Amino acid sequence: MTAVTDISVRESSGTEGDLSAYAGQVLLIVNTASACGFTPQLGDLEALYRDYHPRGFSVLAFPCNQFGAQEPGSAEEIATFCEKNYGVTFPVFAKIEVNGANAAPIFAHLKKEAPGLLGSEAIKWNFTKFLVDRAGRVVERYAPTTSPKDIAKDIEKLL
């Protein structure tokens, strides 16, 4: 089985890397968008990050423009928006695709390990969330409508 932390990702700078810096941490991986009805969740995600980061938790955001073209900005514009409007200090990676032939490897893996409703692997909308344990295993998938605050108890169990 592949650990999430072994998967290649693109940094917001455009350089390729992997998630090995997050090995041993509990992760909440989210596809985000700046112009979505769920965008205010960025503030709640930041609150989780600040509360639990000292205990080995990180939020990893992957902007995506596949749903209603709700993330049209550049990497710099996205980072500025997230920091200015929601005080985001957690990592925001390069914009990716989460569905289709060009889906980023990280989301291909997450979807395979934690299928959605009725076994569908497709991401239905922005702010789908995946909880990953310290061993890099995907343990839960949450719908966009699930508030980050409602995930806190599951994070606590893994910390």
Rank of each mutant, 00 (worst) to 15 (best):
V88P: 00
V92L: 14
P40F: 02
I29C: 05
Q41M: 09
F38N: 00
L60Q: 02
E71W: 13
G136S: 01
E140R: 13
V92P: 06
G100I: 02
R137P: 05
R50C: 12
L45Q: 13
P54F: 02
P72C: 11
G100W: 00
G87L: 07
E113C: 10
A135H: 15
F57P: 01
G43S: 01
A94V: 04
A79L: 14
R137F: 10
L117H: 13
L19K: 10
E140W: 11
I78H: 06
L19A: 07
F130W: 00
I151W: 07
Q70T: 12
V139L: 02
I151Q: 03
V59A: 00
P144Q: 07
L19I: 10
I96M: 08
Y49P: 09
G37P: 01
S58F: 12
N99W: 03
S120R: 14
P40L: 03
A152E: 08
E11N: 07
E76M: 06
S120N: 10
G56M: 00
F67R: 00
Y142V: 06
A122K: 14
S12H: 15
N102W: 11
D150Q: 04
L118R: 05
G73N: 15
R10G: 10
R50Q: 15
Q70M: 13
A35N: 13
G87T: 03
I7V: 05
L158Y: 08
P91Y: 04
V9C: 04
S58M: 15
A122H: 12
S8G: 12
S34L: 12
N65V: 08
M1Q: 09
K112G: 07
Q25T: 06
E97G: 15
V30E: 09
Q25N: 11
I29T: 01
Y22L: 04
K111Q: 09
C82H: 01
L60I: 06
I155N: 03
S58E: 14
H53C: 10
N126E: 07
S13C: 09
E11H: 09
P144M: 02
A104T: 04
A69E: 14
S58D: 15
N126Y: 13
A152T: 06
E121S: 12
A21I: 11
Y52H: 15
A35G: 08
F57K: 09
A143E: 15
A33M: 09
P148W: 15
E71N: 07
L117F: 14
G73L: 11
I155V: 12
K95T: 07
V92Q: 07
F90P: 01
C82P: 00
R134D: 02
T89Y: 10
T146C: 13
T146K: 13
A135G: 11
Y86K: 12
F130A: 04
V30S: 08
P115S: 09
F57T: 01
G24Y: 08
R134M: 06
T15I: 13
A75Y: 09
E11T: 04
A101Q: 11
T128G: 10
V138D: 05
V4S: 08
Y49Q: 15
A75M: 03
K149W: 14
S120P: 05
G43D: 04
A23V: 14
G119M: 03
F38K: 05
A33W: 04
F38E: 02
G17H: 05
A108G: 13
G68E: 08
A143I: 11
A3V: 06
I78F: 11
L158K: 10
